[in-house]
Simulated scan of single mutants.
Amino acid sequence: MIDLLLALWPLFALIVAGYYLRRWAFPNEAFWPGAERINYFILFPALLFSSLARAPLDNPALPRLALAVLLGLGIAWLALLLVRRLRGWPASRFGAFSQGILRFNTYLGLAAVGSLFGQEGLTLAALMLALMVPTVNVLSVWSLTAERGVSARSLLLPIIKNPLILACLGGALVNLSGIGLPGGTDRLLGLLAAASLPLGLLCVGAALKPEELGGEVPALAWNSLLRLLAMPLLAWSVAWALQLPPMESVVLVLFFALPTAPTAYVLTRQLGGDSQLMAGIITLQTLLAAASLALILLLVQAA
Rank of each mutant, 00 (worst) to 15 (best):
L258A: 07
T263C: 12
S224I: 03
T260E: 11
W222I: 09
L189F: 11
P245Q: 06
A239Y: 01
M231Y: 08
G215H: 14
S224Q: 11
S196E: 07
V204D: 05
E211C: 09
L254M: 06
A221E: 13
G180T: 05
P246A: 12
G183P: 00
K161W: 08
L189P: 03
E211L: 12
W240Y: 11
T260S: 15
A193M: 03
L169A: 14
A257E: 10
L189R: 00
L267A: 09
L208Y: 07
C168Q: 04
L181C: 00
S249C: 06
S196I: 00
A261K: 10
A221Y: 12
V250D: 05
L229V: 14
R269L: 13
T268A: 15
I179D: 08
G190W: 03
S196H: 02
A194I: 01
L169E: 02
L254F: 05
P218E: 15
P210F: 05
L197V: 09
C168G: 06
P182W: 14
G190Q: 02
D186F: 02
A261I: 00
P210H: 14
G184V: 03
G215V: 10
Y265L: 10
L244G: 10
L228Q: 09
A235C: 06
L242I: 08
P218N: 13
A264C: 11
L192S: 02
L220M: 13
A230G: 05
V253I: 04
V238N: 09
D186G: 15
Y265F: 13
G200M: 10
R269W: 01
T268H: 04
A194K: 09
L164V: 04
S177H: 04
A221C: 13
G170F: 03
L258F: 07
A207C: 08
L258P: 00
V174M: 12
A207F: 03
R227C: 06
D186Y: 00
L220H: 14
N162Q: 03
L173P: 00
A194T: 07
R187C: 01
N223T: 15
L176S: 13
Y265A: 14
V253L: 05
L267G: 08
L234K: 09
K161V: 07
A264L: 05
V217Y: 10
N162M: 04
G183E: 13
L252S: 03
P245S: 07
E212Y: 15
G200P: 02
N223P: 08
A221W: 15
G180L: 05
L244C: 11
A219R: 15
N162I: 00
V253M: 03
L271I: 09
A230N: 11
A206F: 07
G215Y: 10
L213A: 11
V238R: 11
T263Y: 04
V253H: 00
L199M: 07
F255P: 00
A257N: 04
L191S: 10
G171T: 02
L229D: 02
E216K: 14
L202F: 09
G214T: 13
K161E: 07
P210K: 14
R269D: 05
P232R: 08
P218R: 15
G183A: 12
